[in-house]
Design a protein around this nucleic acid. Structure first.
Lengths: 344, 344
DNA sequence: CTGAAAGCGCTTACAG
DNA sequence: CTGAAAGCGCTTACAG
């Protein structure tokens, strides 16, 4: 493969001049620049980013460690992160922790060895020593979605408290009193917060949250299935199950369906995190929506600020309740299209 | 940040010996190894993969260029690719082309400059010169899912012909005669093949595929929505719409719903690519399922073989029809659980 | 088993 | 505006 030396030889210039021409350094004569470009073209030269990174000590790359790519929320987050990073001249390398602490550490380690310029993390495990001292040590780092309390790193996330309160009000208004939650792992902030918010909201309505109405999940579908089965086996099953993420809601739906039960007639269901499919499930599912793309943008902005020496900004955005039919009683009637299938 | 020199100094050894110890080279005394490890620990040394790559001319990284991360099919593919690559000691960098040729090229270029050891591509655009000569030039490359005809690169993909035939037989058996398809971009092999297979299958049943029953989509949801609207505006709309991927099926569902029409009563719907949500949509959607994880594994295997100098293997796996209720008439009754909600 | 030294492909301060 | 040269942090052939 042609190197910068070959280009220099072909252009009749030094490698220094070639390098300058390629990096748009001002002090290069138009003529030299033209000769370089011609040589690059002729040889099919492709700069070696590895060598450049070694020399400049920057990779123009950020690492994104997320808990589960298969979760549509994180997929969208990843996509938006890449988009925003690209407009700022950065590439992103995604590490999928799949909710496993050791996998998370594997990716953090690999990313660090690759000398990424900064790390965007949604910690699957808040207690990883590796991550803790990466945060302490010089690597620019920003938490997104989930964070680790007590670590001095900017956090970009959504606050779901108000939306959870709205959800509980909605359920209460529908006459439901026995409300259960499938929680995420206690080792994650989102895992805890959503339970806390739910409990606080119930409390405000004078409702209890008995232990048997707290299912322990791990944000993946299987755990939602198992927790739901346990709920259904209870002497007094809950009237509504609130899944702390969309994958566990999918699992819950599977479990409910496997018993031949129907939503919302036999049991209600709501989820944290909204996805396009929730409009088309049977029935459409009431969910709490995060401003995912905005979070992604704010997170990248904070990280790039940190990398480039500007003061980064922590950001908290509100999540919002989207009422559909999975907890009973349709929402206020939607204006129907008058158009019928008259043309058949 | 501590470098190998610091480790050498702390261990009282040369950098050569440190390097050997860290790379498990056999000719290092146990004592030296121990001193190195201790020094590494004490200094928190983290090897610089950039420097190593420059020196060894390998990055132990493969690039994966996919057409759309938001498509659950590709998300799963990406996840399985990473998993398989990891067990073989490779990292993967994902480039999301988002079905845009220039974005695809951007990622291919970036990946090439990073000197990834090999490229796994599902071409969003089969005519990209960049990709074409990357394939010609020395970069180890394999196509997965989609490919580019006439390019000498191993291909790992699913063959959906039989499944499409099964689908048409199923629809015909249900009494449907006016069958439409929302096709993918003609610039992609999967875009073409699925139409071809559909047309061939219709032909076998003596059914026509009029032009107005071929909607032109781009594999993304919006295009499915638009194509479906056009179908519904026809004097004689189709009885069933077959979407060539799951995202366009989502769009179709949106469009159908927006008109106040119902599936399958007013119109039937089937999709290429199966996803977990199809079980829970209203109604559950009949789909053609690909062996995604197997494809991912085979693709990584082929690429790693190529990288490491072994002969790579092209692989074609069959896709299968999964009948649900979205085209009419429920499938043979499922054995119902006798368990009722008696415990309420 | 260990070390001194060359070199991977670039960028950039220094000199002209 | 251009070039010669040093150096980024490693690995590895060569010598001992």
């Amino acid at each position: 493969m042609a190197g910068i030396k070959d280009v220099a030889a072909a252009a009749g210039l030094s490698v220094a001049t070639v390098s300058r021409a390629l990096n748009n350094h001002p002090s290069v004569s138009p003529e030299a620049r033209a000769r370089v470009l011609a040589a690059v073209d002729a040889l099919g030269y492709r700069p070696n980013a590895v060598a450049r990174s070694l020399r400049t000590d920057q990779t123009r790359t950020i690492g994104l460690v997320i808990s589960d790519v298969l979760n549509p929320y994180f997929t969208e987050l990843a996509r938006s992160v890449e988009e925003e990073a690209r407009t700022r001249g950065y590439s992103v390398i995604i590490g999928n922790a799949n909710e496993q602490p050791d996998l998370q550490d594997h990716h953090v380690r690999t990313l660090l060895e690759r000398r990424i310029d900064g790390l965007l993390v949604s910690p699957a495990d808040g207690r990883s020593p590796l991550m803790l001292d990466a945060a302490g040590g010089g690597t620019p780092m920003v938490f997104v979605d989930r964070w680790i309390p007590g670590v001095d790193v900017p956090v970009v996330r959504a606050d779901g408290r108000a939306a959870v309160r709205d959800l509980v009000a909605h359920l209460h208004g529908l006459g439901h009193r026995r409300l259960a939650i499938i929680a995420g792992p206690a080792a994650t902030t989102t895992g805890q917060e959503r339970v806390d918010a739910f409990r606080a909201a119930l409390h405000a309505f004078g409702l209890p949250l008995p232990d048997e109405y707290i299912g322990q999940g791990d944000f993946q579908a299987d755990s939602g299935r198992r927790a739901t089965e346990r709920f259904l086996d209870l002497p007094r099953p809950p009237e509504v199950v609130f899944a702390a993420d969309n994958l566990m809601a999918l699992g819950a739906l599977d479990a409910i369906r496997a018993r031949g039960l129907r939503v919302p007639d036999d049991i209600g269901l709501a989820a944290f995190d909204d996805i396009p499919w929730f409009v088309h499930t049977d029935p459409p599912i009431t969910a709490i929506a995060q401003p995912t793309a905005d979070l992604a943008r704010a997170a990248v902005r904070a990280l790039v600020d940190l990398i480039e020496g500007r003061p980064p900004q922590s950001v908290t955005l509100p999540a919002t309740l989207v009422v559909r039919r999975s907890c009973g009683e349709p929402p206020a009637p939607v204006p129907t299209t008058s158009q019928q299938r008259s043309n058949l």
